[in-house]
Design a protein around this nucleic acid. Sequence first.
RNA 1: GGGCGAUUGGCUCAGCUGGUUAGAGCGCACGGUUCACAUCCGUGAGGUCACUGGUUCGAAUCCAGUAUCGCCCACCA
Length: 894
Amino acid sequence: MTTARRELSRRYDAAVVEPAIYERWMAAGAFRPSDQPPAGAEPFVIIQPPPNITGALHIGHALTATVEDVLIRYHRMRGDDTLWLPGVDHASIAAQFVLDRILAEEGESRASLGREKYLERMWQFMGETRSVIGEQHRRLGASADWERERFTMDAGSARAVRVAFKRLWDAGLVYRGEALVNWCPRCLTTISDLENIHRDEAGTLWTIRYHLEREDGTPDPERWVSVATTRPETLLGDTAVAVHPEDDRYRDLVGRHAILPFLGRRLPILADEHVDRGFGTGAVKITPAHDADDYELAKRHGLPAITILDEQARINEAGGEFVGLDRYAARKEILARLAASGDLEDEKPHQMVVGHCDRCGTVVEPRLSVQWFVHVKPLAERALASVREGRTRILPAHFEKVYAHWMENIHDWAVGRQLWWGHRIPAWYCPDDHITVSDAEDGPDACAECGRPAAELRQETDIFDTWFSSGLWPFSTLGWPDETPDYRRFYPTSVMETGYDILFFWVARMMMLGLFCTDAEPFHTVYLHGMIRAEGGAKMSKTKGNTVDPLGMVDEIGADGLRFALVSGSAPGSDARLTRAKLDGGRNFTNKLWNAARFVLGSRPAGAGARGAGDRDEPSLAVRWIESALAEAVQRATRQLDALDLGGYAATVYDVAWSDYCDWFLEMAKVDLRRDGATDAERAATWDGAARALATLLRLLHPLMPFVTEEIWQVLREEAPAATGDEPLLIRAPWPTAGERDRAAERAFEDLAALVRGVRNLRTEAAAPAAAWLPLVVAATSVESAAALEAGRAYVEALARVRPIELRPDAQRPELIATSPLGAAWLGVDAAAREAAAERRRAQIEELDRNISRVRDLLANASFAEKAPATVVERERDRLAALEEERRQLAHAG
RNA sequence: GGGCGAUUGGCUCAGCUGGUUAGAGCGCACGGUUCACAUCCGUGAGGUCACUGGUUCGAAUCCAGUAUCGCCCACCA
């Protein structure tokens, strides 16, 4: 075992399982932008979507980190002025949800601790998870600039939140007012429309009789109006009954009153066009405080709104005798009472849509309250124009339509949350209820309207929706509202990479707030990745137990294998299944690279390793070909990375590494290295070519598989400094430039490879022992072919395991024959094997004839010749010639 | 009720602006201890590209419709 090979073995675990190289990257400052922007370098900036600091990273985070790291490493190698800024999100409601659960296990609660202690506890919790998340990213290889790491609750973010809100307020885009909002009776806060998840449910539609009022004010036992409802408990808050104005059934009732059961409230019966005559009885009870439609209708008719539920969705004092009952208990009770009095007319199953809290799943209750709103229409219009006019593009493109549709139908954003963990809204009230909004850290000095001193003002207790601070993230992280050097150098950013599931929550808000605050699109490209799904296509979830733990996977197969599995076969916006087979594929590929390197580095002949690309003497066909193949791969990979086609990039590097470099090139290089009579110079030239090609391969692969490539690079640099350009760290090595294609070498290789494949095929057909050396006869098609065969003789011998190879143009041809551009070839095997192949020859000829006549017809077609491009016609002609040559070779057989 | 996406060999997916005989990995079959790798090597079988029409010299690719699946949005009691 050579020194180099021993060194690689020692490094294997380090590279794949416990990557120590990360520390060296950090120490070398490789993740940091240079102190001065390099002259002429384009900035390339990614601001990381901050994970919620509520726990460990899941596989989606690993995908995000991988995609971003690939792009960052690529652009870093390109020499761009590269910044990847990481951070974490305080995740207001999600964090409280998690902490509340932890507290519950300890027998404590939000209430028992009180606001101050609760927040103290939250900061402590944040401190713990924050370092875990950073560590996990490092294990995945994320080359983010940790020195610039930010937090949505740090001082800079807090200031950005205050300033942004103040500017919105000054611009008249913020208002405080009473409205019906989504309320979670468990989280005890308002939630936005986006957090209110609609689900189809099987419910019940009840029909209830409301007796009409008699002249003496008492309910008429004989006459009633029947209303249909899915929520009988809300009748306690009814203030009217509505019918359609042209509904003849009820025409004479309009203007009269009905009496509300239990409470005896007089309900005007009124007409409104929004009532659907076909639904239920055509008469609808109106509960303005607990239903969005009813609220709108009540506004039109000046009806009062009576709130009958408290914040935990229990009946309040307005509910009379039902006070204190939970909404569902009240429903049951009210139905029982109505049934008893004979006023429950009907009950039938009903499919309906019910809103649930995104966080805890509780049924959301519409609740009338005073809230802070952002008036988003004007913001949305700008954000829409940016995408429509291409200043920001969304990948995949069809999400631009989804984005547009949402922006066009946007509602005002209820930004206040009745939670504790988050940025408190910087608004102060004076005793006269004047509102003062201030962006000063210590609040306003006095009431903006009446001048009362700060001591008499009290701050709003509501905090912001967590997405408000997230919406400022692309610039709050760079120093905004100050024009810091980072802000000037790195803003606007380049690519915003995140999952399509938060397009509205986050991307839309960043666009709106970014344009408002900075007057610029916060990024020029939005790359939306898909969701990672489990085997069988199911959504991954902890409760289903079908998750893939990224860190566990790193332990098992290494970060590189995981990264490869995540990226290969993926397309933006499409969900991808992460199967065991795919993960194994990533692991196998890592292993393959490792072993290829082990072979190359362990086989350096005397005198090799020192010379550069410039002074190669007489490179063999193998070397000339692999360099050309790599030139093509570099070209493709570069194009694919520029187009953010990471799946294509993964396929390109996989193919060139495994199929071209390992399967073909290294096998040919072995021939050159081991050939009897080869000079030291020839061997050295081959090895140097292998080392150079390996160096190119490592550069190409590094963005995707940073650990294994860097570890190999370290040894390669010792063995072949010239091949690595003596660059100490691959992470800083320049991205390869596409060299010249060598068409002659490609052609020569393809011809030999076709012959080798043909002969291998024959061996299998003849059931020849794999290890046996068989004689081969080839009838070369031409003098040039014969020369090419002579030149490639050693390759063919070794790769097809045939010896000797006899060139005999006129020999009699047996049935067992392989066709190739260089000529027909046949093996020296027994008659039985040849006989068995005769049938197959006939089938082959038949298929060839079909193809030949197809191409002939195509070429004979006048409109084809006329309309098809010349290159296509030319290609078809070449194909016909090749088919005919193959036919000729076969026809001579047998 | 709107909108979007998908449908390619047993499975998971590629196939860019229409142009080789539609590719890959896994799986399968057969054969392999040839000194980098069995986490491997070689060979092979397997697809009327969901369906129906249309445009075109030429369609997996473009258009229209149908079917199935999935997702998003939506104030109907």
